[in-house]
Write a protein that binds this DNA or RNA. Structure first.
Length: 273
DNA sequence: AAGCGTATCAACCGCGACCGT
DNA sequence: CACGGTCGCGGTTGATACGCT
């Protein structure tokens, strides 16, 4: 309910983050792990609201984030997933663990949407077709929700399944001198820029199992969905069909981007249908 | 070089979901 | 069940970069 009270308080800093603020946040998360965002501003001395801290971490400071332009395969995957899931950027981002939902959302809104609109203008403007597409989108979204709920239930009931590590459970090695700039001493690392911080975090990334990275930005029940998707990827499900799909497309013919006429791979999960 | 329009992306806002009491 | 606190998501905004005239 409502916004966190901290965001309403006066004296809360807004706008771009400084490298010093980034360092404070990263240092705190290194020590305590991500989560309990409410406590972050008071414990770090940051004049930011908890929400801002969480956002900065998940969208920018979190290790494993790939920056720069999207590859053609990533682009295709986003287009497919958007058609399949709608504007559920967090769900889409779970299939692209190196990209944040914010990045994907921005990329979609600023480029892909225009690109697709332009492409669509070139083709027939079948309004009936469009209507059925929207209907299909809604239905599929509902089916996906059911699937997600089922999966969550399965996860909850499977006792022997390995629990993911807590969010941002940063290994101390991250700030060991061999990963730090030469100016650092006794684990006190000076980072003059976010690039420095990223470089520091890369050391951690190399030392962590993939599963941890996949679950690194969320500890809530909602986040567990994200973890499920990514960890499942390592087992070859459910991403395998997407990969197959993309692979087939990239090596073969262009398939029409519609939902009703969507051509799905043979191993497409039946729960979605 | 200056002015203007457009593109990009980090950050904010508001809302709903979840959880503990 | 109701309520309040917290978190995460999706939409939107605003600052900056970039390109064009």
């Amino acid at each position: 309910m409502g916004r966190p009270p901290c965001c309403d308080k006066g004296g809360v800093k807004k706008g771009p983050w400084t490298p010093e603020e980034d360092l404070m946040l990263v240092s705190y998360i290194q020590e305590h792990g991500a989560g309990n965002w409410r406590a972050v501003p008071s414990n770090t001395g940051l004049m930011r609201c908890s929400k801002s801290c969480r956002l900065r971490w998940t969208n920018y400071l979190r290790p494993g984030i790939k920056r720069g332009s999207f590859t053609e395969q990533e682009e295709k995957l986003i287009i497919h997933l958007q058609a399949l899931l709608g504007n559920r950027w967090a769900a889409i981002a779970s299939y692209l663990p190196e990209r944040t939902d914010n990045d994907i959302k921005n990329y979609w809104n600023t480029r892909l949407k225009k690109k697709l609109t332009k492409a669509q203008d070139g083709t027939e403007r079948g309004s009936n077709h469009h209507r059925s597409m929207i209907k299909g989108q809604w239905e599929r979204r509902l089916q996906t929700d059911i699937h997600t709920a089922k999966q969550a239930l399965r996860d909850a009931l499977s006792l022997d399944e390995e629990k993911p590590l807590p969010n941002g459970d940063l290994h101390p090695i991250l700030f060991k001198p061999n990963h730090a700039p030469s100016s650092s001493t006794n684990n006190v690392v000076y980072a003059s820029s976010t690039e420095n911080i990223s470089r520091l975090l890369q050391g951690w990334m190399r030392s962590k199992p993939d599963k941890t990275r996949a679950c690194s930005d969320s500890g809530s029940s909602q986040g567990s969905v994200r973890c499920e998707s990514v960890s499942s990827r390592e087992e070859g499900k459910p991403l395998s069909w997407l990969e197959t799909w993309l692979f087939e497309e990239s090596t073969g013919q262009d398939q029409e981007m519609t939902l009703d006429g969507l051509q799905l791979p043979l191993d497409y999960p039946t729960e979605f249908l």
